[in-house]
């Protein structure tokens, strides 16, 4: 395995959101991730780049894919990885987030990956900890590594972002994935559309320089990438959307709606999918249009790149 040159890439020691990155930062991270895609496909997937360093995965919300993706990324780079979930931590015993932070700090980790239900939690921890903090999702705020892995997936398929139309569809209101993606994709020159019923669109979404659509067929017209968002079960029973069947009828991605997008349009989903709610099974499983498995593979590569970049210190 060849390791990437160790020159610093980022200007910050944390990755809290896409909002803190420049287009150059994004391009550098994507370029670095390409080398890890190669490493991930080799027989020997492991290097000793982070040998002796400690990575803590601190998850206050349950997650299978993001947590295992970070765990695998850390292990492939030779780090010691510790997974802490809320059920096994002292937080459930009444400890505050800052108490947890000082406890963790005393363990002297080098990298902390955190997911929390409240917006701003990762930033709060970054102010109190001596290590690098990576935001793996904070409330409805940001999920930067998801946006980066989506960008890597798109760039590998489409060659770039200029003149690309990306429709982000579904529960934009509660989605940190949507926020990170719309910031990143707009910054990289793509045209971004948000498609959702008004109850699932955040206030003043039009101020983000994106197109807003409530009619999915119009929102998909001419789109090159259709990015579906997960709709949480508790939001389908009348508070935001009246029912699953109505949601699927008007906002679920099926062949008829996809036919309005550009010929050859590709479909993405951050997972886990609700089949028959936001996406029809035959689309999710169609390797000709679905990038969903590829997104998972790119996820590991992107997280390796992020761990690598942060471990190099600041530029």
């Amino acid at each position: 395995m060849t390791s990437a040159p160790a020159a610093p890439i980022l200007k910050t020691s944390h990755l809290l959101g896409i909002a803190g990155l420049s287009p150059f930062d994004v391009t550098a991270l994507l370029d670095l991730a390409e080398t890890y895609v190669v490493q991930g496909r080799a027989t020997d997937k492991k290097t000793a780049l982070l040998k002796g360093r400690t990575l803590i995965n601190l998850f206050f919300e349950s997650s299978t894919r993001t947590q295992s993706s970070f765990e695998l990324a850390g292990k492939r780079l030779g780090a010691d990885v510790l997974n802490m979930s809320v059920k096994t931590s002292s937080v459930s015993k009444g400890e505050t987030l800052l108490d947890t932070a000082s406890t963790l700090n005393a363990m002297r980790p080098d990298l902390l990956v955190v997911r929390h239900q409240d917006a701003g939690a990762a930033e709060l921890l970054s102010n109190k900890l001596d290590c690098s903090v990576i935001n793996a999702g904070d409330g409805a705020h940001e999920h930067p590594t998801q946006a980066l892995l989506d960008a890597l997936t798109i760039r590998r398929r489409c060659g770039g972002f200029e003149n690309l139309t990306v429709a982000i569809c579904g529960d934009v209101l509660h989605s940190r994935v949507a926020r990170s993606n719309l910031i990143l994709l707009s910054m990289m020159g793509a045209r971004v559309r948000l498609v959702a019923p008004r109850t699932l669109l955040p206030a003043d979404a039009d101020r983000f320089g994106v197109e807003i659509h409530t009619d999915m067929e119009k929102g998909l017209a001419g789109a090159d990438i259709v990015m579906m968002l997960r709709l949480q079960l508790e939001r389908m029973s009348g508070a935001f959307v009246p029912s699953v069947r109505e949601y699927f009828r008007f906002y679920g991605l099926d062949r008829a709606k996809l036919a309005h997008a550009s010929p050859g349009a590709l479909v993405m989903h951050p997972g886990p999918m609700n089949r028959g709610v936001e996406i029809a099974s035959d689309i999710a499983d169609d390797v000709q249009v679905s990038l969903i498995s590829e997104q998972v593979e790119m996820g590991v590569a992107i997280r390796m790149a992020v761990l690598d970049a942060l471990s190099r210190g600041t530029a």
Partner: peptide, 15 residues
């Protein structure tokens, strides 16, 4: 407008 006229959850307005 709401299921059962209970004033709690909206009906399937689109359908």
């Amino acid at each position: 407008l709401t299921r059962g006229l209970h004033g709690e959850t909206m009906t399937e307005i689109g359908l």
